[in-house]
Nucleic acid binder design. Structure first.
Length: 585
RNA sequence: GCUCCCAUAGCUUAACGGAUAAAGCAACGGUCUUCUAAACCGUAGAGUGUUGGUUCGAUUCCAACUGGGAGCGCCA
C-alpha cells in the first residue's frame, strides 16, 4: 500500500500534469513539512512553476489548491509563506490506513516492483588477522543494507570477500613452520597466525635470509606445493570457524564467503581480456589501465592533475612487473564472476573512505569493459582513538572486535544488574547480549557513515537518548501492556483516533515505508534510526497521555491496535538494523 | 604539489534547495498510590569555519580561502 507521502505525491503530480502539461518541472513534488504545525506534507510546485513562467507564486498556489479541491486523503490544502501548499491528512484516512497496516505482516511496505539482484560485499577480513574495530562499520553497515534491500523485495547476495591470498602468506607459512606451539593455533587460530605474522615480518626487516625464505614459501604455495597448500587450507578452515563465532555473536550471516583465492584461476583471463580490448597496456613491465581520454580531466580517475593544469598518468595496475596479480585484478575478476554467475544488477561495496580512488578506477574500468553493472561504493569514515588519530593496525593498541563485544556485554550486564536486581542471572545475561550488542551496533548505524568515528566506550554504551536500549525499551513497554492484558490486540473493524497523540503516532506509523526507501536509496541506515527514534518518542507521548488498559470500548481496542502496530514497526525496524528485541528488560 | 572527505549549540550529531536551523548528552527545574522513571514535561543554549557568487529562497549548489583528516604505480 502507498505511504501518505506517495499518495499525496501521486495526486499532486497528476494535478501538475493537468495544469502545466509538458511545462511541468520534474518531481518529486511533495515532501514532509519540517514543522508539523504547518501540516503533514508540502509542495513547492507553485514557486518552481512561478519561476519558470515569471508569475506570482501565490496565484499559482491558488490555482493548484482549486484544482485539488476535495480529497479523501487530505483536508483542503492551505497556502502559506511565499507559496507553499500545505496538506494535512484526514484523521479518517489515517485511521483506515493504520488499520490496514495492522493486518499486514509487511506493515504496508510493498516489495519492489522490479526486484534487482544485488550483491553486497562487506566485512572482508583477512584470515590471518583478528577482526578489530576497523571491521565493525563495514560488517554492521553491510549487514543492515543486506537486510534492508532484502526486505524491500530485492534479491540480495551477501558475500564476504575474505583476504585469503597474497604475499603475506609466505611469511605466515614460514612463521608457522618455524614455530612449535601448535596448540595455540588450535585454540585461537587467527590470533596465533597474526602473532606469527607480526613476529616473522619484524624479523624479516633485519634479516634478509628470513625475507628470502618467506618468499620461497610463497612461491611454493603459488606453485601448488602440497605441504604449503595443505597448511594454507588449514589456516582458512580454522580461521573461518573463529570468524563465525564472532559473526554469530553479531548475528551477521553471509550467503557466500568467496575469498580472493577463489578468483585465482580467472586472473590471467581478466588481464588478457583487458589487453585484447585495448583497455589495458604494458608499462614498465607491469600491465595497467590508463586514461582513454573520454572522461573530463576533472573526473578521470586515471590521471592526476599537476600544478598549472598539466597532468600525469595515474594508472590502475592489474598485473605487477613480476607477473603477480593484485587487488585490482581480483576485484575485476570478482565483478566478472558476479555478473556471469549471479547475474548481478548491482554490486555494493562497503569499505572505508580511503579506498575511494581504488573504486573510482575499478568502476571506470568496469564501464569500459562493458559488464553493465550498477556499482556503488558505500564508504565510511575512520575509527579514531581518543587522540583523534586513526587506530593503528599492528601496534598492539588495536581493539579486537571480540574484546569489544565482551566489554559491551559486560557493561550492559552491569547496568541491567543495577536496574533489575530481581531478574535471574541467566536472564540478565541474555538481556546483556541483546542490549549490549544492540547498543554497539546502533551507536554506529545511527550516525552519518561518512563521518569519522571517535571510539569511546561511554558513547558506544550510553543507554540514554537516541540509542538501541531506548528503542528496545519502548518495545518492552508495549509488550508489558499485552502481558497484562493477557492477549494480543483484538481484531477490529475500524480504528477511532481522537487524541492528538494518537493521530501523531498513527501518522508516524504510516511513514515506515518512506524511511526504508530513503535509507536504501542513499545506503544510509541512519535515516531508519532517525525514524525509529521519532516513532519511539511519539509512542512515549501517547503512552503518557492515553492510558490503554483502563480505557474502554473502541478507544481501548483502537489503542491496543496502535500499540501492536508500533511494537511490530519497532521490532521490524530494529531487525533491519540487525538489532534484536526482548520481551522484558 | 594534486585529488577526495569533513567543519552546525559546551560536547556528539540531524536537517531529501525552502517557512522561526532540529535532537541527544551535559546543565538547571518539575513528574512515579496510576499499562516498567532505561521514561516524560519544561528552561537555558547556535544563525551553520571565512569571503564572495547563483537563486524569490542556501547548512544544502558554485568559486576562492582557513583549519583538520585521508589518498596519490606495481599493499589491500
Amino acid at each position: 500500500m502507498k505511504t501518505p507521502r506517495q499518495e499525496v505525491e501521486a495526486i499532486v503530480a497528476a494535478t501538475a500534469q493537468t495544469l502545466y502539461g509538458a511545462d511541468v518541472s520534474a518531481g518529486p513534488y511533495v515532501r514532509p513539512c519540517p514543522d508539523t504545525r504547518h501540516g503533514d506534507f508540502q509542495t513547492n510546485l507553485a514557486m518552481v512553476q512561478a519561476k519558470k513562467a515569471g508569475k506570482n507564486p501565490r496565484e499559482l498556489a491558488q490555482q493548484i489548491v482549486d484544482a485539488l479541491a476535495e480529497h479523501s486523503v487530505f483536508e483542503k490544502p492551505e497556502i502559506a509563506g511565499p507559496g507553499f501548499v500545505n496538506f494535512r491528512l484526514k484523521a479518517g484516512y489515517c485511521a483506515a490506513q493504520t488499520h490496514a497496516r495492522s493486518q499486514d505482516v509487511r506493515l504496508g511496505v510493498e516489495p519492489a516492483v522490479q526486484p534487482l539482484k544485488v550483491v553486497i560485499d562487506y566485512s572482508g577480513p583477512n584470515i590471518a588477522k583478528e577482526l578489530h574495530v576497523g571491521h565493525l562499520r563495514s560488517t554492521i553497515l553491510g549487514d543492515s543494507l543486506a537486510r534492508l534491500f532484502r526486505f524491500l523485495g530485492h534479491n540480495v547476495i551477501s558475500d564476504n570477500h575474505l583476504g585469503d591470498w597474497g604475499t603475506q602468506f609466505g611469511i605466515v607459512i614460514l612463521g608457522y613452520k618455524r614455530d612449535t606451539n601448535k596448540e595455540r593455533f588450535e585454540q585461537d587460530p587467527i590470533g596465533y597466525l597474526e602473532e606469527v605474522y607480526v613476529r616473522t615480518q619484524n624479523a624479516s626487516k633485519t634479516d634478509d635470509t628470513i625475507r628470502e625464505a618467506a618468499r620461497a614459501e610463497l612461491v611454493k604455495l603459488q606453485a601448488g606445493d602440497p605441504e604449503n597448500v595443505a597448511l594454507w587450507k588449514s589456516f582458512i578452515d580454522h580461521s573461518l570457524q573463529s570468524l563465525d563465532r564472532t559473526y554469530s555473536r553479531l548475528d551477521v550471516k553471509f550467503d557466500y564467503t568467496l575469498g580472493e583465492s577463489f578468483y585465482n584461476d580467472r586472473l590471467p583471463g581478466v588481464v588478457k581480456a583487458l589487453l585484447d580490448a585495448g583497455i589495458a597496456r604494458e608499462t614498465e613491465g607491469a600491465i595497467a589501465v590508463f586514461s582513454d581520454g573520454t572522461l573530463p580531466q576533472k573526473d578521470d580517475p586515471f590521471i592526476v592533475t599537476e600544478k598549472g593544469g598539466a597532468f600525469r598518468d595515474n594508472p590502475f595496475l592489474i598485473r605487477k612487473s613480476d607477473g603477480g596479480f593484485n587487488y585490482a585484478t581480483t576485484d575485476l575478476a570478482t565483478l566478472q564472476y558476479r555478473k556471469e554467475h549471479f547475474h548481478a544488477d548491482k554490486v555494493i561495496y562497503v569499505t572505508d573512505s580511503r579506498q575511494q580512488m581504488h573504486f573510482a578506477q575499478l568502476f571506470a574500468t568496469e564501464k569500459r569493459w562493458n559488464l553493465g553493472l550498477n556499482l556503488q561504493h558505500v564508504w565510511f569514515g575512520a575509527i579514531l582513538g581518543a587522540d583523534k588519530k586513526p587506530l593503528k593496525t599492528r601496534d598492539g593498541g588495536t581493539v579486537k572486535l571480540r574484546a569489544l563485544l565482551d566489554e559491551a556485554q559486560e557493561r550492559a550486564e552491569k547496568i541491567i544488574t543495577e536496574k533489575r536486581p530481581d531478574l535471574e542471572a541467566d536472564k540478565r545475561n541474555d538481556l546483556a547480549q541483546v542490549v549490549g550488542i544492540g547498543a554497539l551496533k546502533y551507536a554506529d548505524l545511527a550516525q552519518n557513515r561518512n563521518l569519522d568515528y571517535v571510539f569511546n566506550w561511554d558513547k558506544l554504551l550510553a543507554f540514554d537518548g537516541n540509542t538501541a536500549p531506548y528503542l528496545i525499551n519502548a518495545y518492552v513497554r508495549i509488550r508489558a501492556i499485552f502481558r497484562k492484558l493477557g492477549s494480543e490486540a483484538p481484531q477490529v473493524e475500524r480504528l477511532v483516533l481522537a487524541e492528538e497523540a494518537e493521530i501523531a503516532l498513527a501518522k508516524k506509523l504510516l511513514d515506515f515505508g518512506d524511511s526504508l526507501t530513503l535509507a536504501a536509496d542513499e545506503y544510509r541506515p541512519h535515516y531508519l534510526c532517525v525514524y525509529l527514534f521519532e516513532l519511539a518518542g511519539l509512542f512515549h507521548k501517547f503512552y503518557e497521555h492515553c492510558p490503554v488498559l483502563i480505557s474502554e470500548g473502541e478507544t481501548k481496542t483502537s489503542r491496543l491496535v496502535l500499540c501492536a502496530l508500533t511494537a511490530q514497526t519497532l521490532k521490524t525496524g530494529l531487525a533491519l538494523l540487525g538489532i534484536k528485541t526482548v520481551e522484558q528488560m
